[in-house]
Design a protein around this nucleic acid. Structure first.
Lengths: 231, 231
DNA sequence: CAAGACTGTTAAGATTCTGTTAAGAATAAA
DNA sequence: TTTATTCTTAACAGAATCTTAACAGTCTTG
């Protein structure tokens, strides 16, 4: 499970620290900026999943920050502001903000609103699935579904077989060293565990076999490791 | 430009009329419901673009309305409530609400929040052919009513069984990991709670069993999780 | 060419995982 | 309160998976 990254743009040190601490505690990955310009830069460079924005910044108008970011990104922006006037809220929301919280706010409420924003962005990512499918010759892997197919037929793979297949597929064309594969799949660094790997390579090859005797999709590089070749 | 349709679920006549009038004036297409049950029905039949929901309904808990709708639809839900406690807000947001406004609120702010929600929903609406009914083989789920049928016969499911069935159905074809299922249903992250899940899978399978001995609709992926297969 | 190192294959045993059952705890209803 | 329903936990048998080890075949290099 990938960690959610949140960018906090806030000039008040104490508020920023409070928010950072709370977010970190909830297992979010936090990056911070103390003014608008660096906030926009961080948004550009890091592509955070959510942005928390204080409107009262020293160097530029918060509204300006929103519009700038909205020119290229749909990332959820939650505004935190000391101003409670309706007009301010409307301005921020219409500039492209997703939500508006008036200070002082309850941290728990902020957390709940972050979860709501997060939920929506997850759905959006589902709508635009980023290459969640892999195809090579007669092999197809549907990463989202967690399934692999050979000629439209579902392959019955064990967990390690599936992991191994994905690892080779993601790095198609590259030669992966034995140690790298072992570390990725077993997590361990014990050098002498290549016995199991050999067995799994065998069983994968067997399951990937097609009737016509094509050469195996998985090639051995003696003394080094294995490689999935492009067909 | 197609007109945006907004469903207002609110039992107080005067508030409802005020909102309806304002929305109509802003060229929204408005449909209204005075209680939760008819609200869910309208959501089912009309697929509105946005839902405004009062939590204080006469017939059922507003939270219940949110979760029911969320079993099949991602439509933006903006909660309007007289209760300003943080706990209430969190409950509603975590149940699936997108925004929470405390009464009395400024109509202009509501309008701005509607525009924000609308901006987000435009994308979703295109891609998600949201259906409040699910059919797979002899199984039929009526999400709006919260009922499941096997060969026209109502299945008597416990709350967790129903949730589990919906989760598998919504993700039909995908392999769901044990941890994902546990997090979705129990909310917890305690890794060791797969015992209950095993029991519920058993009882679901038993209830989904048809006389002709078809293979189970729910497949096990050893070491990973479960999958509902398309029939 | 031949020895040594590396890889592929197989099968058995160990380990882990799953399905099922039943009993007790927790919760909701009467 | 009692009663009924639902949920959790534990235990165990059986199934699936993983590891290990032995051996055969292949490649490399002196």
């Amino acid at each position: 499970m990938k960690q959610i990254q949140i960018l906090t743009i806030e000039d008040d040190n104490s508020v920023r620290n409070l928010i950072s601490a709370t977010l970190s505690m909830h297992e979010y990955n936090v990056i911070t900026a103390a003014n608008g310009a660096s906030g926009i830069m961080l948004a550009t460079s890091h592509h955070p999943d959510i942005i928390l924005l204080d409107l009262g910044l020293p160097d530029m108008d918060g509204i300006e920050v929103i519009s700038r970011i909205r020119t290229w990104s749909q990332v959820p922006i939650i505004v935190l502001s000391a101003r409670s006037e309706t007009a301010d809220k409307i301005e921020a929301l219409d500039a492209g903000a997703d939500d508006y919280l008036t200070k002082p706010f309850s941290v728990e409420e902020l957390m709940a609103r972050i979860r709501a924003a997060q939920r929506r962005s997850v759905i959006l990512k589902k709508v635009y699935p980023e290459n969640s499918e892999f195809v090579n010759g007669k092999l197809r892997i549907d990463y989202a579904a967690g399934l692999a197919y050979l000629n439209q037929n579902e392959l019955k793979l064990t967990p390690i077989e599936y992991k191994l297949l994905c690892l080779l597929a993601v790095n198609i064309g590259k030669v992966l060293t034995r140690n790298y594969i072992i570390k990725e799949i077993w997590g361990s660094v014990s050098e002498n565990d290549s016995g199991s790997l050999r067995v799994f390579i065998t069983s994968l090859r067997k399951k990937l076999e097609t009737d016509d005797n094509e050469p195996s999709m998985i090639q051995t590089h003696v003394g080094i490791g294995y490689q999935m070749i492009r067909l």
